[in-house]
Every structure is written in C-alpha cells, then in structure tokens.
Design a protein around this nucleic acid. Structure first.
Length: 798
DNA sequence: ACGTCAAACTTTTTT
DNA sequence: AGTTTGACGT
C-alpha cells in the first residue's frame, strides 16, 4: 500500500499517456512551480481514471486548477471538452477564475458547475425529449414538503402516521438511491398499510410534479441518468463532448451522482454515431476527495464511492496529498488525534512545515449566552490585534444556536453575517413574491398559483380555490386554464372579477418576450397592491416585509445587470440552486457564522467551534444511526481543519432548548485531543465533580486578561441571565437594529461612568462610529473591557 | 372569508 | 422560546 502514497521517487515518473502515446504531457514548467511531488504527479498523470486523496488543506484546488490548465495549454483538450463538478457555485466561479489566471481567456467554454447546475443545463436542453417543457421550474425542499403535505391530507394517510417531513425525506432518499416508484414498490413490504400509502403518495407526488412541469432537487440528477439510459443518442452526445471529467468532494457523492458519472464516462460504441464508425473511448475521470471529510451520509452520500474507486474504475491511479499548507501543527495534531478514533479508515497523518503556532483555546461557559460572550470578547481582541473581521468564523452544529450568538454579537457591535440558516428566500413575503414570478414563468405550476391566489387578499377563500381545482380536474386542464375560464364557474361578480384580473395580469407577463425579471416583479408587486398593503399596515413588521420585497426587486435588477440576457427562468434557477456557502462575500468586513456542514471547503485565520457538547456535537440523534457517531466526528474534524492560525473550542454547561434549560456534558471529542494542546481559559473539568470546584471555575473567568479572584458574590450574577431582546428586535432583518430600545440620544464621552444591566458599572474609554452605529468602549469594574453598541445597549449614564 | 386565540410542535445537518 | 396550526366567533 505504501506505493499508493506517492512519496517515493519512482512515483514521480509520469505514467505513459493513454491518449496519444507520448510519455509526458508537455506541460509548461510554470504550471508546476511550487508544487510538491505528489501534487505534480496529480497534475501530470494521464490515464482513464485518477483518484486524488486530498487531506484537508493539502492544496487540492490548486492541483485541480493546474491540472485543467495543463490539459488546455498543451491542447490535449478544448475547453468545451472539460466538465468540472464542484460542491458550490462559488467554488465553481473561483475555479474558473483561477484557471483563467493561469492560462488566460481560453478557460471560457468549460463547464464548471455543481452537479445540480450541470444537470439543469442538460435538462433544459433536452426537456422536450421526454415530455417536459423547457420552462420547467424547480421545487425546493419547502415546496416538496408542502405538496406532500397536501397529498397526505387529501388521501387521509395522516391517520396512518405519515408525516410530511418524514415522507418527503423518504422519497428524497429513495430518489438519491436511484429508485423510482415502481422499482421501489418491488422491494417494498406492501402488506404494511403505511408502506402502501407511502408508495401511493409518492406516485401522486411525481404525477403532480410532472403536471406542474417541475422537478425536485433529486430529480435533477436522477432524471438526467434516466434520460441517458432511455435515450442512448442523447447520452452519446454528452459522452462525446466531455473528454475530461473532474469531480471535487467525491466522498460526498450519492448513488445517483455516481451513476451520472458512470454514464458520462462510458465510451460510445460505433453504431450510435452518425456515421456508424469510429468508436469513442470513455472520458478520463479525475476525482478528488477525502473520506475523513464525508459528512453528507444523511442525504445519501455513499463513502463507498471513494473507498472503492480503484475497483470501480480499472487502471485507476491513486495519488495521496498529505502535506497541509493551511494550519499550524497544533491544530493539525488535534485534528489527527480526533479522527484516529474512527476505525475502518486508511490511516493518514496531516503535517505541516510551518511550525506549532498558538495553543488551541478552550472555554466552558455557564450558558449559551455566556459562551457567546466569550466568543464575542475573543473576536474583538483578535480584531484589535489586526485580524480582519472577514477572517474570523464561528461554527455550530445546529442552526438554532445562532440565536444566542447573534444577540451577543449585535450588542458587542461586531459586524457579522449568518451564512445559510433561515434564509432570505424562506421568508413568507419573499416566497409570495417568488411565487408570482414562478406563476409567470411556468403557468403550469399549480402550487405557486395556489399560494398567490389570495395574496394579497382578494376574497378568494378555500371554497373558491377548491371549486377552481375541481373544474380543472374535470376538464383535464391546468389550474391556470380554469382561472381563464372563470366565467363558466358561476362565482359572484366580485370573486369572478378578482380571478379574471389576476389571470389577465399573469398572462400578460407570461406572454412577454424575455422580459426583465426586475420589471416583472416590480409591476406585479405594484399592480396587485401587495406592496401597498404591506406599507399601509400598522404592524411594524409589515414595513420590514415591504423592505424585504423591495430588496428582492433589487436582487432581480442586479441579476439582469450581471446577466444582460438572463431570463426569468434563469433567475429562478439560480435562486433555487444557491448553496449556503455561495452567500459568502469575502470582500465584506464581516464575521461569518455558519453550521459545520456549510463550513466544508472553506478556511479562516481564526475559527470558533461552539457547542462542543455531548448530544449536540455529536448530536443526540446520530447516536442511534449506523455510522452516526463516526460521521459526527468527521464533522468536528472538518471544523477543526478549517482554521489557519487560531482555533477556539467552546461549550456551555447549560443550554436553553425548547424553552427549557438542559444540563450539558463536554463532548467526547474534547477528550480525544491531547490535553497539552488546549489552553483552557475555563475548564469543563468541574462539570463532572460538581460542587466546590464550581466557584473556582467561576473565578477563572474573564477572557484574555485573567484577573484573579473576583468578588465571589458578584461573578455568578453577571453570567447567568442575559435579558432577551425586546419584542420586534429579534424579528428584525439580521444585522439591522430595530428602534425599540433607543439610546441614540445618549451622549457619551470618554471618562463618563455608566451602569450596564449585566456587566455592572464601568468607565467609558472611547467612543467611535456615527449615528446608529456608535460604539462605546467601556472598562467595566468587574468584567473588563467591552465594546457596546450604544443604541441598543442596556446602559444608563451615571 | 377572515380575524383572534389557544394548542401543538419544533431543532440535525442541505443541494 | 418561537412559530405554525386548529377552533371558534364575527
């Protein structure tokens, strides 16, 4: 097995070329500059299949871009013959840029995209081949859930205990395993009434999707595989075209994606070619991955895809990249130590030549808020030493953990952005507006139509909606057609008029020739009175909703600016396929907050992993899933290896969940890290002991500058409760501060004494910023220095 | 048809 | 704790 590591000299000799028989591709030396031996080998190898086992931070993106650049610069491949699959759209954009930077404009014409984007592209081209229209739209998980929910209710299956979420994810799982209803049915236990109901729901779900001219996420992959298998001529088209296929994050591919790769890399037999001659060999496949970073088993990722690569693809070459160029040795040692506890893996040791670096910092808070305060204090002190906000990230296992973090970050005047999570596009008003756009772009989609039928209020209630739907079903027409024929339904004049007005408005936009999405949306939101209604509402939240809709209009305008010919369909597709990590904008000076899953593939100078507790990381639910705990460990490993220079691990003794406070234990992963690597600012040790040591731990508090014993009476008080923000403030758009507690009139100058609700008394040492963003730096008597956003801080001048 | 109030559920991770 | 669903009254 040692030869697989590619570290001995023999491995440096390039393998003979499969393509034109030359011994070594004439890759320019400049493209190999600064690459270590295995990296070079990964760039230079030519053959049918190459697996690059790339440990975290080992420069795999560099290898991939240089490999592509090499293929292009030697004219071994035209740009159009290259298909590179990345995990996010952002990664795709970066890869394209880096290839361009290496070899210039030639990079245009390559397909570099995510699995889903590539499949949409293929499906749009070929939709008419198998009964879809080119204008199909994409159902996101929320849409899927809503549809499934309706089907369950209509069929009365809810009495059998079928839940929308469970059923939707079961369908998704089956589709990721490349099943369709019929193939699933054959393996299902149909004597179980629940299973029978499930199959029936699934069948109707697929039927509804097709009627709506829509695909769900999983269909995007699965239907392309189906398309290739059912139409060999179509498959031949793409097999001929893509000669070099490169797949990043291969350890997270699922069965459907694997099947897609297999389909694309097959050779083309002569008889399917136009002239019936000249068989075409299969494309060359390069995959990059690290089984230690496989964290998506829950959505069907199959680690066997990478483990058994050599068996699957004959003549496969394996190159191992082990040298890490990202993190300090202390961080790598911690990562190595933790991942070693997973058995059943090929042993691997990340190393660096860059030195030990700083110690890992540990902290145990009393509550989630206390932990968040530690994070905020450390972020401020990092920033004070010159680290930009954008180089700092806070990770967590569950999205629910953002709440406490956000509250404290806002108060500490730290600019931040939550990546992913409760997304902009999941807000009700945004979904409404998007439903209008879908209704215009894809008139067949009944679901978006149903959503907007009575939004804003038009007097069209459930009864009217049901009547429309049954009319549509009776005449075998779409819901939209039924609306056009509203006169035949015998509604009252008011309702009839409302429906006709809406149908006419939508039709006018549907028929326009490649309209500007921004103008369409602005017109719809204006003409329907949607915006006016929100603006006229006395509810302060509605004003914020109106602003969100205006924000969406701005987004559509931006889209048209970036894609001058971008259609409405293009816009909807782009929105449907954005990944959380695509929201990252490194030019902005903001701290990034995200889940550990979203963090995959990213890196930051300083990383905080929060909530390192049993039942949270590893998550409780994973304990009973096969391979669950091991996957949680990989997740932690992914988090640790994102850090370049500084790593912080924090936890809380108690955590609020479901409105109840639960006691938390330190995560097993903490014990797996050698103790000498962690500098505990406040150790979790006392959690086991209980009692006496607790006050010792309390006294050890106070972030960076340890100030020895505090008044034992004062300290516990200050850490316990953080009052929740006033109503309205929590609902505010992230990073905007609502007007509830308004201190903006409060004049502070250095030297003033103030009292803070939680921190006690202190003296203002500096005031910076203007207007709503004025920040006071305060030296508190008991808890040290803090930065406070004056406008909302619970403070008073003394 | 629509608004108000109590009850129930939620939180594992995502393209 | 916060959001969504159901029942009920107008």
């Amino acid at each position: 097995m040692t030869d697989l590591w590619g570290l001995d000299d023999a491995a440096l000799v390039p393998t003979p070329l499969g393509r034109d028989g030359a011994n070594e591709p004439g890759v320019d030396d400049a493209l190999l500059d600064g690459l270590n031996p295995p990296q070079r080998e990964a760039v230079l190898h030519r053959g049918p299949a190459l697996l690059i086992v790339a440990g975290a931070g080992s420069g795999k993106t560099r290898v991939l871009t240089h490999r592509i650049a090499g293929l292009l610069s030697t004219r071994e491949a035209w740009p159009s013959q290259i298909l590179a699959i990345t995990f996010t759209n952002k990664a795709a954009g970066e890869m394209r840029e880096r290839v361009s930077a290496l070899i210039g404009d030639e990079a245009r014409g390559m397909w570099i995209s995510t699995f889903h984007s590539a499949c949409v592209r293929i499906l749009r081209r070929e939709a008419e081949q198998f009964g879809f229209k080119q204008s199909f739209t994409i159902y996101d998980s929320g849409d899927t859930r809503a549809l499934v929910k309706r089907l369950i209710k209509d069929s009365g299956s809810d009495t059998l205990g079928l839940t929308p979420g469970g059923t939707a994810s079961k369908i998704s799982k089956a589709k990721n395993d490349l099943h369709d209803v019929d193939s699933y049915r054959e393996t299902a236990n149909l004597s179980d009434p629940r299973e029978q109901a499930f199959v029936e729901i699934w069948r109707r779900y697929d039927h509804e999707l097709r009627r709506a001219n829509a695909f769900d996420f999983d269909d995007l992959i699965g239907q392309v595989v189906y398309l290739f298998r059912a139409f060999p001529v179509v498959a031949a088209l793409y097999r001929k075209r893509f000669r070099h296929i490169l797949v990043d994050e291969y350890q997270d591919t699922n069965r459907a994606q694997y099947a897609l790769i297999r389909e694309l890399t097959q050779g083309v037999p002569a008889h399917t070619l136009p002239d019936q001659r000249g068989e075409i060999p299969g494309a060359s496949l390069t995959v990059v991955g690290d089984s230690d970073q496989s964290i998506y088993a829950f959505r069907g990722a199959d680690i066997r895809n990478i483990v058994e690569f050599e068996r699957d693809f004959s003549d496969a070459k394996v190159v191992l990249l082990e040298q890490n160029y990202r993190s300090t040795q202390h961080i790598l040692s911690a990562a190595n130590a933790v991942i070693k506890h997973n058995f059943d893996r090929r042993d691997k040791n990340l190393f660096t030549t860059e030195g030990d670096g700083d110690m890992i910092v540990g902290y145990t808070g009393y509550s989630g808020h206390d932990e968040a305060q530690f994070v905020a204090d450390e972020i401020v002190s990092l920033q004070t030493t010159g680290m930009p906000w954008s180089q700092i990230a806070v990770f967590y296992r569950t999205n629910a953990q953002t709440r406490a973090l956000e509250e404290i970050l806002i108060r500490s005047a730290i600019p931040y952005k939550v990546i992913g999570g409760t997304k902009f596009y999941e807000r009700a008003e945004i979904k409404d507006a998007m439903a209008y756009l879908v209704a215009v772009a894809n008139p067949d989609d009944a679901m978006s139509l149903r959503r907007i039928l009575n939004v804003p209020k038009r007097g069209i209630g459930p009864a009217t909606e049901a009547a429309l739907q049954s009319f549509a079903d009776e005449h075998d027409i779409t819901l939209r057609d039924a609306m056009r024929r509203v006169d035949e339904l015998g509604f009252g004049p008011k309702v009839t008029g409302a429906i006709r007005t809406l149908a006419t408005l939508l039709d006018a936009h549907s028929q326009a020739e490649n309209p500007d999405p921004g103008s369409v949306l602005a017109d719809l939101m204006g003409r329907t009175g949607y915006l006016d209604q929100l603006r006229a509402s006395p509810d302060a939240q509605d004003a914020a909703r109106a602003e969100n809709v205006e924000e969406l209009i701005a987004v559509t305008r931006e889209f048209r600016k970036a894609n001058p010919n971008g259609s409405l369909i293009d816009f909807l597709t782009e929105v449907a396929l954005v990944a959380a990590a695509d929201e990252l904008d490194d030019s902005e000076g903001q701290v990034s907050l995200m889940t550990l899953h979203t963090a995959k593939g990213l890196e930051f100078d300083a990383v905080f992993i929060t909530g390192v507790e049993e039942d949270l990381l590893p998550h409780r639910i994973s304990a009973n899933e096969p391979g669950g705990p091991a996957e949680e460990r990989r997740l932690f490993y992914v988090g640790v290896t994102r850090a370049r220079k500084r790593l912080y691990l924090s936890l809380a003794m108690t955590r609020a969940q479901f409105g109840e406070v639960t006691v938390a234990m330190p995560s097993r992963f903490l014990q797996e890290i050698p103790a000498e690597l962690i500098d505990w600012r406040q150790s979790p040790g006392f959690v086991n002991g209980r009692g006496g040591s607790q006050s010792r731990a309390l006294n050890a508090r106070q972030g960076g500058a340890r100030q020895g014993a505090l008044g034992t009476g004062a300290a516990p008080r200050s850490m316990g409760r953080y009052p929740s923000l006033p109503e309205g403030e929590k609902k505010a758009f992230p990073n905007t501060i609502a007007e509830v507690r308004d201190n903006s009139g409060l004049e502070l100058v250095p030297g003033d004494r103030i009292r803070h609700k939680d921190f006690g008394e202190g003296r203002v040492s500096a005031v910076t910023g203007v207007g709503a963003k004025r920040v006071a730096e305060v030296q508190f008597d008991a808890v040290g220095k803090k930065r406070l956003l004056i406008k909302i801080a619970p403070i008073e001048k003394l």
